[in-house]
């Protein structure tokens, strides 16, 4: 609160008649201090808030306009261009009954997102809370559920709407994220690419060890936090950005993207419009047609 400014009272006429006498009161030796808080009605609004962050994202147009899809990695092959003879390695993804389950709304949840489910699950294996969730969207029980953030309300699809391969256009770019293959407990040479020690020249039982874990007194005689060591390798989520969509097959549910995608065959891959490319211009008839034919 800003300090209140005392309003001088209008002196009564009786006061004016009386002689002026000095007031004797307790007076502080300390001068009145200005507050250490910076308040003023003219200060700009703080932006280090979730609201500010969302506003910045909207202003910079960094959130995807459309939802993505859950796909299954089915394997790799290559495509040849008949005219140029160029070979392009590619990954074949298959969309398995991808449907919209729910929305995340700014007013209720703090952000805009589309919850999407894929695959199918036997009804007997569905918990009652999830069963109600699927029923609310009017879809069959799904095996995988994921959220895709979108910029605003315009990116929300109708509940139960199917996302088919035609959602992606040949030539557009997508980001693909999936859990990479886990390698288990791996040594430093495999995990971090260390060189190891020589095979001979007097080496005794140290060929693949990490060697030193750091300096001595100069670096505090301790192991610094974050020191690379042997341990669990792989199994983390990996995003591959800017993969070109090479082929789309609506009847077979296939989306072919350029290059490789992390993870084993059969893993779930999240694909969404690439963040670092221009947003694809999807003609509305296609989006509508894909929505109506598959809904």
């Amino acid at each position: 609160m800003p300090p209140r400014i005392p309003v001088p009272r209008a002196p009564s006429p009786l006061h004016q008649l009386l002689p002026i006498t000095a007031k004797r009161t307790i007076k502080s030796l300390l001068r009145p201090q200005t507050t250490r808080f910076n308040y003023s009605p003219n200060l700009p609004t703080l932006t280090s808030t979730p609201t500010g962050a969302l506003a910045r994202k909207e202003a910079s147009d960094t959130l995807p306009h459309r939802t993505g899809a859950l796909a299954i990695k089915r394997g790799m092959t290559a495509l040849y261009d008949a005219t140029s003879g160029r070979r392009t390695p590619c990954t074949v993804l298959q969309l398995d009954r991808v449907q919209v389950l729910a929305h995340k709304r700014r007013d209720r949840h703090g952000y805009w997102a589309v919850q999407v489910g894929a695959g199918s699950r036997q009804p007997k294996n569905v918990t009652r809370p999830m069963a109600g969730h699927f029923k609310a969207a009017g879809v069959s029980p799904k095996r995988w559920v994921a959220e895709f953030r979108v910029r605003d309300e315009g990116g929300l699809l109708k509940l139960g709407e199917t996302i088919s391969p035609r959602w992606f256009q040949e030539g557009q770019f997508v980001d693909a994220r999936a859990d990479c293959k886990g390698k288990g407990f791996a040594g430093g040479m495999k995990k971090h690419g260390w060189a190891g020690q020589p095979a001979s020249h007097g080496q005794s039982l140290t060929h693949r060890t990490m060697g030193s874990a750091g300096g001595s007194q100069g670096s505090g005689s301790r192991v610094h936090p974050g020191k690379n060591m042997a341990g669990r390798m792989g199994g983390q989520r990996v995003t591959v950005q800017n993969l070109k969509v090479l082929k789309v097959d609506e009847t077979n549910g296939i989306v072919v993207v350029n290059g490789s995608v992390s993870g084993p065959k059969g893993c779930v891959v999240r694909i969404q419009d690439a963040l670092k490319k221009a947003w694809p211009e999807i003609p509305s008839p296609i989006a509508e047609a894909s929505a109506t034919t598959t809904a």
Binding site: D96, R97, S120, R128, K135, G138, V139, S140, P141
Partner: peptide, 11 residues
């Protein structure tokens, strides 16, 4: 619980 029948499996 009643469930919606799953669409045809692309697999």
């Amino acid at each position: 619980m009643r469930f919606v029948v799953a669409p045809p499996n692309p697999k």
